[in-house]
Design a protein around this nucleic acid. Structure first.
Lengths: 336, 336
DNA sequence: TTGAAAGCGCTAACAC
DNA sequence: GTGTTAGCGCTTTCAA
């Protein structure tokens, strides 16, 4: 069933059918009804490819993320997909992995598919070296590129980020002020946002003249989901004689690693070991006591990102970068 | 830049360019190189819409799931997306929610987009009443429909399921045999697979003549991620005088609810309360002791589902339904 | 208010 | 081994 069939059965031209289909005003009520009746009768739907070819768009946005099964990224994808759909856009999902090369090829693939815009989910897409970020600038030559939780100053690239520096800075201060003078920073990523968080911790510690040893900065490099391995990392550290009465983790999973370490070593939480996580995910309620964690307002970020993207696609001038602040949600793993 | 531009610059016809593009053998090495050089020089990529229009396919599969942020579904989507891509297919992700009406419209949307096949992720798409499943049969009139963890006997519908009945049956027996004579079944879904699990529990209990009260079947109806509410559900139950020394949960999150209940009520796990979860997710390592859980081989299921879909798309005869068995992974929350 | 016709960029059948 | 040409189904300008 094509537009020709409908036009024939309705006794009008294909142009008129097209007008009805696209809600053009220049059609008499009478013809409109006639056409609509035929369309409904035959349950006709226009061919999306032909329409795409004519309009040069299929109203589709490419979502690129390193790993859609990651708790945090999955949540982001969920929000983004829903909000895109509410704006009449579809989303092509593409998991790129964490390698620069596979990221590049995934991004190119998306471009090839003629998406109207691209959303890079997570901070891992931005690299330290400018030359490593060129692949994003290249993509932005074709379609607008949106960054969630990462920032890059380049034409046609828009960034929506959480103020990880300040969140971490304040969380660290709060822990120090509650009496923990030796909080350890436990992280697993040196991505764009990873660096901001680390800097926030450092700044807080240095403002109190408490950063005395590099041992307080612990980079865990195993699997992002392997809680026992995280716990073991801390156990080994303690066995080496490093002393800490608090852990500030770069995400909730890492914080659970600290929880497990505490349990295994007979430490009371928060009295012997205070813990703060990041992301305020469902994991915060999965342990006992509940995990204090930083809420970085993911849904707000996603909402804003989509709003910005829609504006850009409409040709409206939009802010190149937007920053939202986070908030520490206190549960049972912090003192005070 | 179109195929015409390339053909002109290379001094050949568009048919030849098309042949080179599609790896047709009937092109001399010399012309091939000539064309390829021009293509590379101008970084030409064919227009996907035009190709889609001609071939009537964009090699895209629609993935429908109720909630892509759900731990289990997110994992499934991840596997599916990767395996599709490995087979040269893209995926359009669409979150439908849990309502029948929104499921219907999401499914139709996907059809409208002319996807080559549709994957329904999770058992919530299948209803008790046959008439409620008609929307799936309708969709299957257009494109093959794959069901993950649900089954429906209809033309052009293919099902890949985990043997939840047997898994639950054996898990229950194992708990009974370890000495727990009053395990409670704690569930939150009456979906296709939810029913299978429940039936497995019942069968095991009845085989041992242990199912004495409906109180042993506890349906929790709150948020799927609200662990404290789950714990509270059990606390209230215990307060009412219902006695149980084991909990078999329909997923790991529910099991964590039981863990929290135990903690809050000073019960030792597994001595006073044995617990078994389902899905063998990352949550199993998020608590102390580690959660015993049923591994339903999600990656295997997904792999098989994609293989089947690819076969169907190639016109190969494929099994309409495939069943995989699960396995109880014992950790610290079970006796014996 | 309506219709005719020219693209949109590609594939594939057919001719040479 | 290569070129010609007829679609694929729609949108949109231009005439009427």
């Amino acid at each position: 069933m094509t537009i020709y069939d409908i036009s024939e059965k309705a006794g009008v031209s294909i142009a008129t059918v097209s007008r009805v289909l696209n809600g053009s005003s220049n059609v008499s009520e009478k013809t409109k009804k006639k056409v609509l009746d035929v369309i409904n009768q035959y349950e006709y739907t226009p061919n999306a490819f032909a329409r795409g070819l004519g309009l040069n768009t299929m109203k589709t946005i490419g979502i690129l993320c390193p790993d859609s099964s990651d708790l945090y990224l999955a949540k982001a994808i969920y929000y983004i997909e829903r909000k895109l759909r509410a704006n009449g856009y579809d989303s092509i999902l593409c998991c790129s992995g964490y390698d620069l090369e596979t990221k590049k090829s995934s991004l190119n693939l998306l471009i090839t598919k003629k998406v109207d815009g691209i959303i890079l989910v997570g901070s891992s897409y931005i690299y330290e070296k400018d030359t490593d970020n060129k692949y994003i600038c290249d993509a932005a030559l074709q379609v607008p590129v949106m960054l969630l939780n990462a920032a890059l100053d380049a034409p046609n690239v828009y960034s929506v980020v959480s103020d990880d520096f300040t969140s971490m800075y304040e969380a660290t201060l709060q822990m120090i002020n509650s009496g923990v003078k030796d909080p350890l920073y436990f992280y697993n990523s040196t991505s764009y946002s990873g660096k901001k968080k680390l800097a926030g911790y450092r700044a807080a510690m240095e403002s109190k003249k408490l950063l005395k040893s590099g041992n307080m900065l612990q980079l865990y490099q195993g699997s992002h989901e392997d809680v026992p391995a995280m716990a073991e990392h801390l156990s080994k550290l303690a066995a080496k004689g490093v002393i800490f009465h608090g852990v500030i983790a770069s995400d909730d999973t890492m914080a659970l690693g600290a929880m497990k370490y505490a349990k295994e070593n007979g430490l009371r939480v928060p009295e012997d070991l205070a813990i703060i996580g990041y992301n305020n995910s469902m994991l915060t309620d999965c342990c006992d006591p509940g995990l204090s964690s930083i809420d970085n307002k993911l849904e707000t970020l996603c909402q804003h990102l989509i709003t910005t993207l829609m504006g850009v696609l409409n040709g409206t001038e939009m802010p190149k970068q937007t920053l939202f602040s986070g908030e520490l949600i206190k549960r049972g793993t912090t003192l005070d």
